[in-house]
Simulated scan of single mutants.
Amino acid sequence: MRSGTALREALFRLLERTTFEQLTVRDICAEAGVHYATFFRHYGGKEALLDDVAADQIARLVALTVPIKESGDDRGSILALCLYVEDHRTLWSVLLNGGAGETMRAEWLRVTRKVTGPAPTNSWLPAELGTICTTSLIVETISWWLRQDRGNWLPDAVAEIIHRLVMTSIASRAPAEGA
Rank of each mutant, 00 (worst) to 15 (best):
E70Q: 10
L50T: 07
H35Y: 04
Y43A: 13
L61Y: 07
L49K: 04
R60C: 08
H88I: 04
H88C: 00
F40M: 05
V85R: 09
F39I: 13
G45P: 00
A63I: 01
K46Q: 12
G45A: 06
L81F: 13
A63V: 09
D74W: 02
L83A: 14
K46E: 11
G98H: 01
A48H: 09
A54M: 15
V94Q: 02
Y43I: 14
G101D: 05
T38V: 15
T65S: 10
E47W: 09
A37I: 08
I68P: 04
N97M: 00
I58V: 15
A106P: 12
A55M: 11
G45T: 00
S93Y: 00
Y84S: 10
I68M: 08
T90W: 02
D51Q: 14
A55E: 14
L81S: 10
T38Q: 15
W92V: 08
I68R: 07
L91Q: 11
D74T: 08
A100C: 10
D56Y: 11
E70P: 02
H88V: 07
R105D: 14
V62P: 01
L61Q: 04
G72W: 06
Y43K: 12
G44W: 01
I78L: 15
A106C: 11
C82R: 10
G101A: 08
W92P: 00
S77C: 12
H42K: 04
E86C: 09
L50Q: 07
L49C: 03
L49N: 10
T90G: 12
L91S: 10
W92T: 06
R60P: 00
G72N: 01
H35S: 06
V53D: 10
L83E: 15
M104I: 14
G72V: 04
L96S: 00
F39A: 05
F39T: 12
Y43C: 12
G72S: 04
E102H: 03
C82V: 13
T90A: 15
G101L: 10
Q57S: 11
R75A: 14
V94Y: 00
L49D: 11
D56A: 15
V94C: 06
A54C: 15
T103Y: 01
D73M: 03
V66N: 07
A48C: 04
T103W: 06
C82P: 08
E47M: 08
